Simulated scan of single mutants.
Amino acid sequence: MPRPAEPGRTALLTAGTRVAEDRGLRGLSINAVVEAAGMAKGTFYHHFPDRRSYVIALHRRYHDALAEVIGAQIAELPPGAERIRAGVTAYLDACLQTRGTKAFLAQSRTDTDLLDEVHARNQLVANSIEPDLREMGWADPGAVAHLLVAMVAEIALTELYGGRPREDLRAAAAELIDRPEN
């Protein structure tokens, strides 16, 4: 009879987030994860077939948690600029407060195991804000959404490395969001 995935899977993912925060994705070895979790290496392989699938699970878990925070902030808002601004603010604030942001936002862009995941997640977010941009009058909301995702990710990285919110960048992004093409 197979063992249930929980709580071992969760313990491994939690340990991996700590390791990624402390050592980055390059330092995220299976040995480091099981040591941080206080588990045997065999337990890791019970839950994950390899490092790649584990790193993907970590990345998804990180972004799913961010999505929950953002969703709670925008749930009651109608499509449009206010909803996008609220989502951007929630995302940026959460990135500053969430363990693993450096690894899962910055380093994941260059980790070959995560490139497809990063692109897929960015496309998912872009698709989710297209209706807002369409409501605002943008003629090509897909292209604008793609650029908005890239812009907000860059702001998040700037804030992360600076250790504080960049109100000037947030204000500039809000101004750009409010200016649909004519």
Results as ranks from 00 to 15, higher is better:
107 Q>S: 13
142 G>E: 11
166 R>V: 00
26 R>N: 13
26 R>P: 09
166 R>S: 03
132 D>Q: 10
150 A>Q: 14
65 A>P: 04
90 A>E: 06
115 L>W: 13
173 A>Q: 02
166 R>M: 03
154 E>W: 09
100 G>M: 04
53 S>Q: 15
1 M>P: 08
107 Q>C: 11
20 A>F: 06
121 R>V: 04
154 E>I: 06
147 L>C: 12
55 V>R: 04
53 S>L: 12
105 L>M: 07
134 R>D: 06
148 L>C: 09
168 D>V: 05
69 V>P: 03
92 L>E: 11
47 H>L: 02
136 M>W: 01
30 I>W: 12
115 L>N: 13
29 S>A: 13
10 T>H: 12
27 G>Q: 10
149 V>H: 07
33 V>Q: 15
4 P>N: 03
155 I>H: 05
158 T>G: 09
81 A>R: 09
12 L>T: 06
35 E>I: 03
170 R>E: 01
157 L>R: 00
160 L>S: 05
174 A>Y: 00
153 A>P: 00
161 Y>K: 09
34 V>E: 00
170 R>C: 05
133 L>K: 10
156 A>C: 12
156 A>D: 01
92 L>M: 11
30 I>R: 12
99 R>K: 14
172 A>D: 10
37 A>E: 14
94 A>C: 01
131 P>T: 06
37 A>Q: 15
53 S>A: 15
8 G>D: 05
52 R>H: 13
141 P>E: 04
32 A>T: 09
49 P>H: 09
100 G>H: 02
55 V>T: 07
172 A>L: 15
33 V>D: 14
126 A>F: 00
28 L>D: 07
61 R>D: 15
142 G>Q: 14
162 G>W: 06
78 P>E: 14
41 K>W: 08
96 L>P: 07
118 V>A: 14
49 P>W: 08
16 G>T: 00
143 A>Q: 15
79 P>V: 06
21 E>N: 01
26 R>G: 12
50 D>M: 02
48 F>N: 05
140 D>V: 13
121 R>K: 13
178 D>F: 03
108 S>W: 02
137 G>L: 04
59 H>D: 14
163 G>D: 02
137 G>Y: 03
116 D>H: 14
77 L>W: 04
14 T>V: 13
141 P>Q: 03
43 T>M: 10
172 A>M: 12
170 R>A: 06
137 G>E: 02
150 A>N: 06
137 G>I: 08
61 R>F: 08
143 A>P: 05
84 I>T: 08
101 T>L: 10
161 Y>V: 12
51 R>C: 00
144 V>A: 11
57 A>Q: 09
123 Q>W: 03
80 G>P: 11
7 P>C: 10
43 T>W: 06
154 E>D: 15
168 D>W: 02
109 R>F: 10
15 A>S: 04
180 P>K: 04
80 G>C: 14
112 T>H: 09
2 P>Q: 10
125 V>R: 08
16 G>V: 00
57 A>M: 03
169 L>T: 01
155 I>R: 02
161 Y>T: 10
179 R>M: 13
37 A>H: 11
5 A>C: 05
91 Y>V: 01
127 N>R: 10
37 A>P: 13
88 V>P: 00
131 P>E: 04
78 P>D: 10
73 Q>N: 12
133 L>M: 12
20 A>C: 13
28 L>Y: 01
43 T>Y: 06
98 T>S: 11
12 L>G: 05
180 P>E: 08
108 S>C: 07
141 P>V: 11
76 E>N: 12
98 T>W: 03
98 T>R: 04
117 E>V: 06
135 E>N: 14
